[in-house]
Computed example of a mutant assay.
Amino acid sequence: MAEAGFFGQFGGSFVPPELKEALDYLGSQFEQFKDDKAFNEEYRYYLKEYIGRENPLTYAERLTEKLGGAKIYLKREDLNHTGSHKINNVLGQILLAKRMNAHRVIAETGAGQHGVATATACAMFGMECIIYMGAEDMRRQSLNVFRMELLGAKVIGVEDGQGRLKDAVDAALNDYVANYKETFYLLGSAVGPHPYPTMVKHFHSIISEESKRQIVEKEGRLPDAVMACVGGGSNAIGAFAHYIDEPSVRLIGAEPAEAASLTKGVPAVLHGFKCYVLLDEEGNPQPTYSIAAGLDYPGIGPEHSYLKESGRAEYYTVTNEEVLQAFKELSRIEGIIPALESAHAVALAMKMAPEMAREQIIIVNLSGRGDKDVQQVFEMEQG
């Protein structure tokens, strides 16, 4: 892999010079602190005492028996404080912001889980918090909007475009360009200009650090496959990180059929970095729609783009119908209500596990819990 934030041809930092200066400074601070003993001791303290890590690697025994194929284990990011994997990265970045003496924090959010996590961390450390969220996503995830406001955040609705995640990122980047001297942009996915994809992967790699140790303790060996949902790619890159250099382990991403950047996209620059992007006939980012607001993004993280192009990882699409079936199935069979985002990975595991041998092992990264989605699914069921 190339230096300066490139993964093969993907990544980089295609931004105005003044923003490049701010990002270079952020990158230098990250490099300084990521291996700093005191920083990591504080990070690990909050991972345990505030987030509740390490979380379990749960054998989904009844689901495995019903499917009749590979053994399925669930990495339980849904049990984290705030209900998803997002808090891992937020905690790391907020500790970095604290060391950079930042007092104003901005973030974007789609499903609201990153926004809730950011608002939570800002409340804990007494920082001003502004969250940009698409107007359509605010409607779909109104409970999370209330949670963010309850935690003291100011949520700004973005009416531009489709009023979804891409538009929230646009608005947050515009704010950052205008106010970067006094603002820390806490980006929530493994996307954006360098150093964000590298930072987000670093803080989320705790997922695969734990699961790799846990599966060896439980099964005496590595899994045959690790599966995760992919939107921007933060939970997936964390779930994959410690297996990338283990060629015996298949890395498998589940994309929404309606926002399948890796399956149907082409290399292009989006939001200051190069990745696979869904483009329309005019060469603009294509409108996307997924029932999972957190996956509604026309691009994908640069490292996922590289893993796809190099053949190290595989990416497949699942339909809304398959996702809803997985959402209900896991709830009924295992007593675990998954986030709609996470249900994409469960749906793919339900398709692939029966085709695998019984002695094979799949780890599914259960990136979040479905509390936020129950009302949406209820309304869909009512027709």
Rank of each mutant, 00 (worst) to 15 (best):
E322V: 07
F184M: 09
L330F: 11
D36L: 11
A102Q: 14
T109C: 06
A326V: 06
L307A: 07
E329A: 10
D35C: 07
A339K: 12
L151G: 02
E128H: 10
G12H: 08
Y289H: 15
K351T: 02
I130V: 12
L19A: 12
A60C: 11
L330M: 15
K86P: 01
S84V: 05
V364H: 04
A117Q: 04
K75I: 03
K75V: 01
F184G: 03
F14E: 15
A236K: 10
Y46V: 11
Y289T: 07
R164T: 12
P195Q: 04
E49F: 08
I207D: 03
E128S: 14
Y73F: 15
D245G: 07
N88G: 02
I72Q: 03
S211I: 11
I215T: 04
L165Q: 10
L366F: 02
E54C: 11
K166Q: 12
L47M: 15
A349K: 06
L348T: 05
A268K: 09
A111S: 11
D137H: 01
E18T: 14
H81Y: 13
K212M: 12
V177Q: 14
A343C: 05
C122M: 08
A121I: 05
H202G: 07
I336D: 04
G11P: 04
A241D: 12
D35V: 10
I207V: 13
L165S: 06
E379A: 12
Y289C: 05
E61Q: 15
